[in-house]
Amino acid sequence: MTGDKVPDRPVPGGSGDDAVAGMPSKPAAEPEPAAEPNPEPDVAADAEPDGATGPGPQSSDEGAPEEPEHVDAPGTEEEAVPASAAVRRRRRRDPLASALIGILTLLLGFAFAVQVRSAGTSQVLAGAREEDLVRILDELNAREERLRGQITEQRTALEQLTNSDSQSATALEEARRRAEAIGILNGTVAAHGPGLRMTVRDPDGAVRVEDVLDAIEELRGAGAETMQIDGVRVGVSTAVTGRPGNLMIDGRPITAPYGFLVIGSPQNMETAMNIPGGVVQRITGLGGSVDITQVKDLVVDALRPLDTPQYASPKTGN
């Protein structure tokens, strides 16, 4: 059986493969190797451009220089066949390639324009990566913190300025009030207000220094704030000197009748003058007389020179 078949096999060769199921593998294998070499040229032809394109995508500048072999090949006789095939292939594919190139470049232009457009909008954030978003958020937070710090600083500065402004204004006002009060007490500024006009007549020239001093002290005790006697302002250091009938205040002579202009509470002062054993009674006892009139608004305008302290200076920082 086998002997018969063996001689048969070579004869039918490829045709007898149908007869034996087990055997055909070999005859079938024979055509395959034969078929493989045939496609190989095609594959090789394809592979050559592919080999060129292989580097192409990875590095088109490298891929480009490699091509010259094929493109220059037409000139060289040896590779004339594959080269001409490649050229033919290119020629044949020209419309297709052109179309592809056109489509690709069109896509590129389209994508370029779209990307440029979308990169200019806030929509960018929507497509950003999570890490990028976190970074952006961090940056924004840090910026916000910085700005908040600045706001706090500015606010504090503003508060300080306002404070010091109002403080200095208050201090100035206070100082002015104090200066006025001291000026009035000291006799360096004119003053006006309710008070007494008191005229002391002394026909006998009997009123003594003590009586005038008493009158001043009584008036002060009754709340007199400032006064002048015969046009001489009475201050803290005022001295009454001289002899009866020839009295002097601060070294300036005064003559009877002595005119007192006193600012203070009129009722209180008048009462103080008229108390038993008081100024009025004593002067009357000396042969003089005292006229007292309450005035709603009298002016004390005699001034004393300001005494600049020679030795004393203000102590600061108590």
Binding site: P49, A52, T53, G56, S60, E67, D94, A97, I101, L104
Partner: peptide, 12 residues
């Protein structure tokens, strides 16, 4: 460079 190949270009 004079070595442009449409196929190379498209694939790359």
């Amino acid at each position: 460079d004079g070595i442009f190949d449409a196929k190379v270009f498209v694939i790359s």
